[in-house]
Design a protein around this nucleic acid. Structure first.
Length: 590
RNA sequence: GCCGAGGUAGCUCAGCUGGUUUAGAGCGCUGGAUUCAUAACCCGGAGGUCGGCGGUUCGAGUCCGCCCCUCGGCACCA
């Protein structure tokens, strides 16, 4: 993927009757980190589009609204607001938030359906199933059987009932879908890449089992509220919500034929299609990996390039469910953010979350472990010790480095002493003088900063392309570990005690600390997509705020265009992450 | 039931097409070193029959068979 390709990432649009919880936040966080990373890589947000929103046309929305004495629209608006609030709190940088009740969505979704009817991909047919009169709904064959063909609610017998419905001819696209998924696997254009791999196999297996046409509408009944989208040309039928909902990914960027809207939306968004990534939890993979791509094929649109279905969060080892009432809701997340900072929560959710095929556990003990290991003892401590030494030894001014392009090589002279013409040799010699030499038997090391940084940055970008966001951001923490290792090897604090005797020792110290600070700066850029505000803290304290439009790979070049400039002021600043006590109780909402 | 994934150090997991070693990493735990730093960082250790049994092979976590266990998809839920 070149840096110029438009990047379009979506989350599902969330069922507006729900309350925002960790699941919604997690999926959207993954999208947010991907979007922020891609913007950074391109140096601007112009070619990145990140969409989220709410799915509002469910019949349950009408019911709930009634119970609350509100119109469906009032209720939906209120709860869509809750999602926006939660997502704003999480710091999500979505470019648009779509509600399926908006005209732009309804009009275009309706248009797609109409086109599919004209092309014969949606046709009228008979639907026959088990009708539960008390609930006014059809039950699937398996559910009906499990319930012994009586209503699970009222206990009255189910009736066999037939009606006319519209169907999408999914069965016509079996071969094309196979082909697209195979191409996606090979990374070819026009293909749909399904991730993680285990999910792709599930999908392929299910397609092999045969595809059938799927119902996409139901007949409107007497007394039904006017909620949802009607079948074009047949107002007696309403489009099923899920099929209409899927269309949101396209309706939002398909604004070209509505010039007034497009103007208000900053121009045509057509270039963002096909979507780069549809993100979702595993439960709705089938819709996104099969039905939606088939619909797009029928519409003559390209299918999404990647469909990524992550697994679920469980809580302290137990599945989250409505019956257990143990969902981690936004309030709990807020409580964690209040205690440990929002960026720490983002870090934990992203790096420990169920991005793969298996579920992930949210446990307080694990949270504290990760918080301390990666953040407090990791990047926080490292930034602090480096900033402190620069403040202490160089009056808070970035020191002038010498010769870092050569890397930091250790060289032993024939007589067994260190070659003090290298920075590393100088440092090791100082340790010997001080009586704290590197333990014998410890491997001889070289610290080639330019190469190491280059390698980590390349790895991060490769991981980003594979949508391995965890690895992408962890490369930043790995760099910090490299700096920590370097500091204990060179012991700049030991060197610092000898600089009065020897000017060359001072210059070695300058080089060492500059390299440390420069690398921490780069690490901060690398983790900024997950921890935007903590990164900003470092940039503020160190005066190295990336200029608008700066590209990732330039920002991350060791000693490059955006390097820490000698002479510039640096302050130690406040600790980024205070160490947490594992014995402390978990934060509670309220 | 059908289809699929997996069982490797206390925990979370790497180990692709079988022979680089006496099977690795991170976290936790423990001993040491050190003081610039947020009792942080660095070094070392901890010795896990690589789920069980049998087989193929000169040689198997790595291939085959059987068995035990766990977990996913097939059905709404991020």
């Amino acid at each position: 993927m070149t840096d110029q390709t438009p990047f379009y990432v979506t989350t599902p649009i969330y069922y507006v009757n729900d309350r925002p919880h960790i699941g919604h936040c997690y999926t959207t966080l993954v999208a947010d980190v991907a979007a922020r990373f891609e913007r950074l890589r391109r140096g601007s947000g112009r070619d990145v589009f990140f969409l989220t929103g709410t799915d509002e046309h469910a019949e349950k929305v009408v019911e709930t609204a009634q119970k609350r004495g509100l119109s469906p629209m009032e209720w939906a608006t209120q709860n869509a607001g809750e999602f926006r609030k939660a997502f704003d709190f999480m710091g999500f940088s979505f470019d648009d938030f779509v509600r399926t009740t908006e005209d732009r969505h309804k009009a275009r979704a309706s248009d797609y359906i109409e086109r599919l009817m004209k092309s014969g991909d949606i046709e009228l047919g008979d639907y026959e199933g088990w009708w539960d009169a008390s609930q006014e709904e059809y039950l699937t064959e398996t559910v009906a059987k499990d319930a012994n063909f009586v209503s699970p609610v009222s206990g009255k017998p189910l009736e066999r009932r037939k009606e006319q419905n519209y169907f999408f001819r999914l069965d016509k696209y079996e071969a094309q879908l196979f082909d697209a998924i195979a191409r996606g696997e090979r990374g070819e254009p026009g293909g749909v890449r399904i991730l993680p791999e285990a999910r792709r196999n599930e999908v392929l297996g299910r397609i092999r089992g045969g595809l059938q046409r799927v119902p996409v509408s139901r007949r409107i009944r007497e007394g039904d509220a006017d909620w949802g989208i009607r079948m074009p040309g047949d107002p007696a039928h309403r489009v099923y919500v899920w099929i209409e909902a899927l269309c949101n990914y396209l309706t939002v960027v398909d604004n070209e034929r509505a010039p007034s809207t497009a103007a208000a939306e900053g121009g045509s968004r057509r270039r963002f299609w096909p979507a780069s990534v549809h993100l979702m939890a595993k439960d709705i993979l089938w819709f996104h990996a099969v039905i939606w791509p088939a619909m797009l094929m029928a519409l003559g649109e390209e299918p999404p390039r990647t469909v990524y279905a992550h697994a679920y969060w469980v809580r302290e080892g137990r599945k989250m469910s409505k019956s257990l009432g143990n969902f981690i809701e936004i309030e709990t997340i807020e409580a964690y953010a209040k205690r440990y900072s929002l960026d720490a929560v983002r870090w934990y959710l992203l790096t420990q979350g169920p991005l793969g095929a298996t579920d992930a556990d949210f446990s307080h003990a694990k949270f504290v472990e990760v918080y301390n290991a990666d953040l407090a003892n990791g990047i926080g401590n490292c930034a602090s010790r480096v900033g402190n030494m620069i403040e202490k030894y160089f009056g808070g001014k970035v020191p002038e480095p010498r010769d870092y392009q050569q890397g930091f090589y250790q060289r032993l002279l024939p007589d067994g002493s260190f070659d003090t013409s290298t920075v590393l040799g100088q440092a090791l010699a100082a340790r010997q003088v001080a009586g704290t030499p590197v333990p014998t038997g410890q491997s001889v090391k070289a610290f080639n900063f330019p190469d190491v940084v280059k390698h980590h940055v390349a790895e991060a970008l490769a991981a980003l392309d594979a949508l391995d966001l965890v690895r992408a951001v962890q490369m930043g923490i790995q760099l910090v570990r490299f700096v920590d290792d370097f500091i204990s090897h060179t012991a700049p604090f030991t060197l610092a005690k000898q600089i009065n005797e020897d000017e060359s020792k001072k210059s070695a110290l300058q080089t060492i600390l500059w390299a440390c600070a420069e690398t921490v700066r780069i690490a901060s850029v690398m983790v900024s997509p997950v921890m935007p505000s903590k990164a900003r803290h470092i940039w503020d304290a160190w005066n190295c705020f990336p200029p608008e439009g700066a590209e990732f790979r330039h920002l991350c070049e060791f000693g490059g265009e955006y390097k820490l400039n000698p002479g510039q002021a640096i302050s130690k600043g406040e600790a980024l992450f205070m160490r947490a006590d594992p014995a402390e109780a978990a934060p509670v909402a309220g």
